[in-house]
Each structure stands twice: as structure tokens, then as C-alpha cells.
Design a protein around this nucleic acid. Structure first.
Lengths: 164, 164
DNA sequence: TTTCATGTAACTCCATAAGTAGCGTAACGA
DNA sequence: TCGTTACGCTACTTATGGAGTTACATGAAA
């Protein structure tokens, strides 16, 4: 009846939507970087393609969190106050509304049994989603960066920009 | 067997793993049904194929929650005490380890920034997962059936087995 | 005008749930 | 023994969505 899960969050070679963590990774690097960063550089940083970067960053740009500049010396720049943007904001801007991989078909079934089951499952999912939203909404990018700096100092590491 | 292609209409877009709710639906029907139920009957109930039913039920059988009988009068029977089986047990038996659609690549990145980001995101996911696991683990099939009966009575409905 | 960068469309690739078909196997009954 | 019933299993197909890739247009700076 319990609980000991060894199938963790990032398990079993599953194809997860990594846009949120990728974007956070990029933004934190951008925050400690002077001048614009090109999609090419970001792509190299993430081990991916410039087009994939642009595709993801487009959502951030539309939300006003970054801006992009074309031509020589162009690239991506942060355009918002990091203290006022939460992880939830990024998650939404990046277009990742689907949090859960499980759920139920037949939203409005005729069968009373099915209806009861769906409600029970979906109530539980809703609870977990509410928690997730609350937690992601409570962390600002500035806090994330700050906690990273603190961790760095306590470890004495100097590799603030290992990738790139 | 009918093609049943109308699921694409209402379900526009997301293809969620509905094995948990489907299985619960089946089990609750089985609980209030005398004798074995064939995969064919269950499939008709769920609006799906007998093979899909067997595939899903196989996990429950391996876990000992149901047993299957071949030949005349064969089919699926509940083989466990419903009070001792939780929704979490079913979820796991049914082979649905992937709860979240979001996550992060690179479990152990070299980049310190990425590491910090991943930790923040995954901590949050782990929290939500823990809540989910706790909730699913706390509800037994017997309780689910009981709460369903209570709801039925309070509504005065008599359609205990609408599908099937 | 050349070069660099984004913007976007149109693909391919891959993993997974689900749907389908076919054949094997076990259990019963006549 | 034979036919029917039902599960068991394998292989294939379909649909979906994130990611990867190619190609080309656009705009800005040197």
C-alpha cells in the first residue's frame, strides 16, 4: 500500500518535455553574460540546434522576458526583471501546459462508475498540479540565481560557466 | 470488432496514459459482477479492443490482483482483497511509471548552472510526485467503490452498471 | 553588398499508448 | 476426437508531441 518509488522523476529514458529546465539554464547564463547571446552559442551550450533554441525562445520573447536582435552583434538579451519572473511564468511562456502524462479519456462518460473513477483520479492530479503551480510560482529567476551563487561559494568552485 | 474512431473528436490533442482510470473502471465493475468477465466484454465496456484489455490486465495478473481463466466460462476474476489494494498499486501494476510529461535531460550535467536548475525543477516535481503517490496510496479500491455507492444513493440513481 | 543573425516553414526522427491481425494454447463439452 | 471459447503472445500500424534538421527569407551592421 505504499510508496517506495525508485522510478524517479527523470527516469527510464523517457522523452520528457525539457523546455522548462533548458530555458532556465539559458536564462541563468544570460543573466551573468554581457551583451546578447546568439542562438548558435546557446545551442552549443545546450548541445542542441540553433533552430530549436529560437523555437523555444520565441515564447519568451512573446511574453516579453527576452528580446532578440538581428544582424551583426545581434542575439538574445534578457528584457525583464528577474525578480519578477517565476519558474511558472517561464513554464507557461515556453508553451508547456501539459504537466502530466497520465489522465483519463472520456471526460464526460455515461457510466456512473467511470465518472466516479475519473473524478477520483483527476482530483488527485489536480491537487498535485496545484502544488506544482504554487511551488513554481513561488520561485523567481533571481532567487534561483541567488541560490546557485550561494551554493557555488560554499563549494569553493569557480566554474560558473562550465558550458559555452 | 467495431473501428470506434470517434475518440479523436472529443480528445483533440493530448494523448494521455489512461490505463489507470480504465483499469479502475474495470475493477469496480468486476467487483459488482458475478463470475468471470471476458476480455471481449470488458473491451466492449471500455469501447476498445480485447487485446488492449488483455495487455493491460496482464500487469494486474502478474501482480496477483486478478486471475485469468481460459476456455469455456473463462475470463477475468478479482483475486485480491479490494481493501488491501490502493490506486497506487494499480498504477504500478499497470506499468505506468511515467507521471510527468515535463522534466529535464542531462541527469548529471557538467555545467554547474544546469545542475542547479535541474535540482530546483526536479525537487519541485518530486514534491508533487510524493503528494500524488501519497494520495493514490491512501485510497483503496474498496474505499473507491464505497464512495461510489454512497454517491449513487444520495443521488437516487439506479444505473450502477450503465456500460456493459 | 556581404556577412551575420533571427524567423519560419517543412520536413524527419523517436518513444509510447493504443488499435489491429494472426496464430498458438488451454479448457470445456458433445 | 473435434469444435468452440477464451486467454497469450508477437508483430505490425496509427497517432501524438518534443526534438532535430534543412532550407530559405528577412533585417541589421560593417
Amino acid at each position: 500500500m505504499v510508496a517506495n518509488l525508485d522510478w524517479g522523476v527523470e527516469d527510464c529514458g523517457v522523452r520528457t518535455d525539457s523546455r522548462l529546465s533548458r530555458t532556465l539554464h539559458v536564462l541563468l547564463h544570460m543573466a551573468r553574460h554581457d551583451g546578447p547571446m546568439t542562438s548558435e552559442a546557446i545551442g552549443r551550450m545546450l548541445g542542441t540546434n540553433p533552430v530549436v533554441v529560437r523555437r523555444t525562445m520565441a515564447g519568451l520573447r512573446d511574453a516579453g522576458y527576452v528580446k532578440s536582435e538581428k544582424g551583426h552583434g545581434g542575439g538574445w538579451t534578457i528584457a525583464a526583471n528577474l525578480a519578477e519572473v517565476s519558474l511558472l511564468d517561464i513554464h507557461r511562456a515556453v508553451g508547456g501546459p501539459r504537466i502530466f502524462a497520465i489522465g483519463s479519456d472520456h471526460p464526460n462518460p455515461d457510466c456512473a462508475v467511470e465518472k466516479a473513477v475519473n473524478e477520483a483520479v483527476e482530483d488527485t492530479l489536480r491537487e498535485a498540479e496545484a502544488l506544482l503551480v504554487a511551488r513554481l510560482g513561488a520561485i523567481s529567476l533571481a532567487e534561483l540565481a541567488r541560490s546557485f551563487d550561494a551554493q557555488l561559494q560554499s563549494c569553493g568552485t569557480t566554474t560558473a560557466d562550465t558550458c559555452g
